[in-house]
């Protein structure tokens, strides 16, 4: 069996640094398998989050060879094992220990977004009738597993630390899922501009590149939301002509 060299970020605070570990690798292994093997063989105190090992829980997010990835979905066969495999924690969130970061900021930020506000029910039993064609667009956004790789790679958070003024790609996807829903009545444009800082996004598409669920984050959620903000704040034509206005249903 071949041996692989893994360079893993260890420690916390000022004392953290890379440490090298060797372990045997075989075909079909993923990075998380190697990390578990290293835990079992030589570093039982290596901290790392994981849960499903199937790319659906979003827990094992880390940076592998510099790119944000799910460790459980990164096959060693796809990496150059002649070079050390570099495994680091996410860079956009406070580092706790080893590969673990504090991502609680995401959950706090999500609470700031105006919730789903449906129109009056269509039927007396309190239910609605919605055409499949109308919900297709937002179904893509429901695939998000909240791994926060998009948040990690976004330079507005990663390099500029705009956490207090910027929601980040994950929460734009969430906002888009609410705002484009055919039943929703809420107007989130002002919130996106003033509190969500959508103007900070400069469309690098890095979030789309790293999404393990292949959500077209930039083109299908962020840019359409930017256009909705432009409708409300930067385009006088939307004020003059009804055809240019959004068609949000009226609230109850």
């Amino acid at each position: 069996m071949a041996q692989g060299l893994f360079r893993i970020w260890r420690g916390s605070g000022e004392d953290a640094s890379f440490e090298d570990y060797k372990t045997e690798v075989s075909s079909g292994m993923v990075v998380l398998d190697a990390v578990h093997q290293i835990q079992a063989e030589s570093a039982p105190d290596l901290a790392c989050r994981w849960n499903c090992k199937a790319g659906k829980c979003g827990s094992c997010s880390a940076e592998v060879n510099g790119m944000p990835r799910l460790m459980c979905m990164t096959r060693l066969d796809d990496l150059d094992l002649d070079q050390p495999v570099i495994i680091e924690p996410l860079q956009s969130f406070p580092h706790m220990r080893d590969l673990v970061t504090d991502v609680s900021w995401n959950f706090e930020t999500k609470k700031k977004i105006k919730p789903f506000t449906p129109r009056k029910p269509d039927a007396p039993d309190g239910t609605w009738r919605v055409k499949q064609r109308d919900v297709e667009r937002v179904q893509e956004f429901r695939k998000c597993i909240e791994c926060f790789l998009c948040q990690d790679v976004c330079h507005v958070l990663r390099d500029h630390h705009k956490h207090d003024e910027f929601y980040g790609p994950r929460h734009y996807v969430y906002t888009a899922a609410l705002d484009m829903h055919p039943l929703d009545t809420e107007d989130r444009a002002a919130d996106l501009r003033d509190n969500g800082g959508i103007g900070y996004c400069n469309i690098t598409k890095c979030c789309t590149k790293v999404c393990p669920e292949h959500i077209t984050i930039t083109d299908n959620s962020i840019i359409p939301l930017k256009e909705r903000v432009a409708d409300k704040f930067y385009d006088p034509l939307t004020k003059l002509f009804p055809i240019f206005r959004p068609d949000k249903p009226k609230a109850e």
Binding site: K131, R133, D134, D179, M180, H181, P182, D184, I223, P224, E227, R228, D231, F244, R245, P246, D247, K248, P249
Partner: peptide, 11 residues
């Protein structure tokens, strides 16, 4: 966005 992206209902 202009042709229909701003709409929430296509039907």
């Amino acid at each position: 966005h202009i042709v229909a992206g701003r709409l929430n209902r296509f039907t």
